[in-house]
Amino acid sequence: MQLTKMLDPYELRAVPMTAADIPQLHELSVSVVWPHRPEDWDLVIRHGHGLVARDEIERLVGSTMWFPLGESHAAVGMVITSPRLQDHGTGRWLMGLVMDQIGDRGMVLNATRPAYRLYISLGFMPLAPVFQHNGEVTASPDTAQLPALGPGKVRPLLPEDRAAILGLDRAAFALDRTAVMDEVIGLSHGTVLERGGQVRGFALCRRFGRGHVIGPVVAETEAEVLHLIAPIVAEHRGQFLRMDTRAPDGPLRRFLVAHGLVHHDTVTRMALGRALPAPEGDARTFGLLNQAFG
């Protein structure tokens, strides 16, 4: 795959992404109405590999990234092209370059609606929808109205929970993203579900975009998820909050809507190549870390 592309009347070139690109990457994401702050770009750059497309006068007009998930798989994300170039094949060219870098790893991504047809044409297969809920929290949850939790208790996240959370995320997500998770834990506050002296679920919350994002969230049932996120939602009453989930319409998504986090958008989880491994144990990922990492 060539590292230059002719676009009438000028040429684009792809170069490695660095932290020095963050100001222009932020401008690029703003141009397509993505909420990422410069700090959000900094996080993904430090944990991934990226390319940027520049034109002949050094304007940054495109981006693409991939993130190792152990040795067998990679997540693809942050694929953006300037609106004025979206009908010129720039996205396909950038995807070809990043797929060459990824090699024979299995690939997974979350496709926006405008990019869905591109990924289908590249051979990606749809797996499941991802529902983005966000908005200003309008009410504090009434915990008395939550479904029964069962054995165990929900308590605030503590520094000594780090190892248990990393292990639980690894089992539920079924792929290794320890490095980024280790940093995200340090950036987050949250809750854990403790049962029999062991952490059996967790919900993290950190600054992102217009406010805060809840995620990842790992638990065995939606009832557990509601008990894990209710204190976080209450803490952010009157503030902008987001959660991305693959859960279908049910108690979790209805809870989010009832507290001001409306359904804002839907993307599609897609995969190519090696099959994704199944989760280990009963815990599942109910809330994404972000759409780039899954």
Results as ranks from 00 to 15, higher is better:
residue 115 A to W: 00
residue 166 L to K: 07
residue 190 G to T: 10
residue 163 A to C: 07
residue 138 T to D: 02
residue 157 L to T: 06
residue 179 A to I: 07
residue 161 D to R: 06
residue 212 H to T: 10
residue 131 F to G: 02
residue 174 A to L: 03
residue 143 T to F: 12
residue 116 Y to I: 00
residue 116 Y to L: 01
residue 207 R to D: 15
residue 192 V to R: 01
residue 208 F to L: 13
residue 157 L to P: 08
residue 203 A to W: 03
residue 126 P to N: 04
residue 137 V to K: 08
residue 207 R to V: 13
residue 140 S to P: 03
residue 121 S to E: 01
residue 189 H to F: 12
residue 229 I to M: 08
residue 147 P to C: 09
residue 164 A to Q: 14
residue 126 P to H: 02
residue 149 L to Q: 11
residue 231 P to T: 09
residue 197 G to D: 09
residue 145 Q to L: 15
residue 195 R to H: 11
residue 145 Q to E: 15
residue 161 D to H: 12
residue 217 V to F: 12
residue 220 E to W: 02
residue 127 L to F: 01
residue 163 A to L: 13
residue 151 P to F: 04
residue 182 D to F: 04
residue 220 E to Y: 03
residue 142 D to T: 13
residue 164 A to F: 06
residue 121 S to P: 00
residue 153 K to V: 15
residue 219 A to S: 12
residue 202 F to Y: 12
residue 179 A to T: 13
residue 187 L to Y: 06
residue 176 D to G: 05
residue 162 R to Y: 07
residue 154 V to K: 13
residue 228 L to G: 11
residue 132 Q to C: 09
residue 170 R to V: 00
residue 214 I to H: 10
residue 128 A to G: 00
residue 181 M to L: 15
residue 129 P to N: 08
residue 156 P to R: 09
residue 215 G to K: 06
residue 196 G to M: 04
residue 176 D to H: 10
residue 227 H to N: 14
residue 185 I to C: 05
residue 179 A to C: 02
residue 109 L to G: 02
residue 105 R to W: 01
residue 202 F to S: 01
residue 109 L to H: 04
residue 164 A to N: 10
residue 149 L to S: 11
residue 204 L to D: 08
residue 176 D to W: 08
residue 167 G to E: 13
residue 232 I to V: 15
residue 115 A to K: 00
residue 109 L to Y: 02
residue 190 G to C: 04
residue 216 P to W: 12
residue 129 P to M: 03
residue 110 N to M: 01
